[in-house]
């Protein structure tokens, strides 16, 4: 399946026409998002996720590089007819009712007037906001606005849904509903590209992820491939600090436990395997070795941490 998003060497410096910040918000980002996936775009605050999404939505202009969505440049109106977008902090005209706002969106999306009302009713039903259709948006809570944001994003039955932090501001019930909506969109063939901080949700919903830090892409790929790189977890019992000290330089992660013991994580290598085999034979009571498959959270922190060391 072809890529729905192609980003090539995209760089963004913020600032005015005459003065630019020295550090780029986005630094030569190259990313391909394949079709048929739910893509999670991860990164700490200030990593450049929202900047990337805004560049994709043509809300800001790149300093250099280019992006294509569904094979077209981001400023193409044809492309915008095929995508749905939820901004990170959805804000709508407060004087409009939910329905009026959706009517404006429907007009912008050129949804025929014959089917407009029906479609609006459908999306209001999907986001469970039918009862609030006539209420002014100005009186809505953050969660309700988020739902209306989703409603306007899926109004045109988009091919690609771009969601910026969609789970923020929702209560657990709302989060679950939104996840269901995303999954249902995936089922009907909509590709989803979304950024999030909530890694457990991303792990459950996404097929692929990309991790961004300081404007640079650390890694991207299918989530099962990224997390399949099995490692070794070494538990060192209390009082055996000398063992821990020997292995610490090779560890990709280490924790000193409250009971005085150590938990070390390694990426599997031949050298390590032979060393551990030897240790297991010599001091079987002091250690325990198990294979480890990282969860997304561990993977994320490891990647961010390793990027920090590189710097």
């Amino acid at each position: 399946m072809s890529n729905v998003i192609e980003i090539n060497e995209l760089t963004k410096y913020y600032g005015s026409l005459f003065w630019k910040k020295k550090t780029p918000a986005l630094d030569r980002l190259t990313l391909l998002v394949p079709g048929g996936t739910v893509f999670g775009f991860l990164g700490p605050n200030g990593a450049g996720k929202t900047t990337t999404i805004k560049l994709l939505m043509d809300l800001i202009r790149p300093s250099s590089g280019q992006a294509r969505i569904l094979g077209e440049p981001p400023d193409s109106l044809d492309v915008k007819r095929q995508i749905g977008f939820l901004p990170d902090a959805p804000a709508f005209s407060s004087y409009l009712s939910a329905r009026e706002f959706l009517v404006i969106c429907a007009k912008l999306l050129r949804i025929p007037s014959a089917t407009r009302r029906k479609r609006i009713d459908e999306v209001l039903d999907i986001v469970k906001m039918t009862n609030h259709a006539g209420s002014r948006l100005g009186g809505f809570s953050r969660g309700m606005l988020q739902r209306i944001g989703i409603a306007q994003a899926i109004l045109n039955e988009p091919k690609l849904l771009i969601l910026d932090e969609p789970l923020v501001g929702l209560d657990p019930h709302g989060r679950q509903e939104l996840k269901d909506i995303i999954i249902s969109q995936k089922k009907i063939g909509t590709d989803v590209f979304f950024s999030s901080h909530i890694l457990s949700d991303v792990e459950k919903m996404c097929d692929s992820i990309g991790i961004l830090n300081n404007g640079k892409l650390l890694c991207a790929g299918r989530i099962d491939q990224l997390l399949s790189a099995t490692g070794v977890r070494l538990h060192v019992n209390p009082g055996c600090d000398n063992i821990a000290q020997d292995f610490l330089p090779m560890a990709t992660g280490s924790i000193k436990l409250s009971d005085g013991g150590w938990e070390l994580v390694f990426t599997t290598t031949l050298d390590l395997t032979s060393k551990l085999d030897k240790l297991r034979a010599e001091r079987p009571g002091d250690i325990s070795v198990s294979s480890s498959r990282e969860n997304l959270e561990d993977f994320f922190f490891r990647k961010i941490e390793s990027d920090r060391f590189v710097e």
Binding site: K54, M57, D58, L59, L77, D78, K80, R81, I83, F85, P87, A89, P90, A91, F92, S93, I104, C105, L108, L109, R110, G149, Q152
Partner: peptide, 13 residues
Amino acid sequence: EGVASTLLSKPLG
């Protein structure tokens, strides 16, 4: 407030 961004994410020049 970002209202313009929401509108401009639609097919609107």
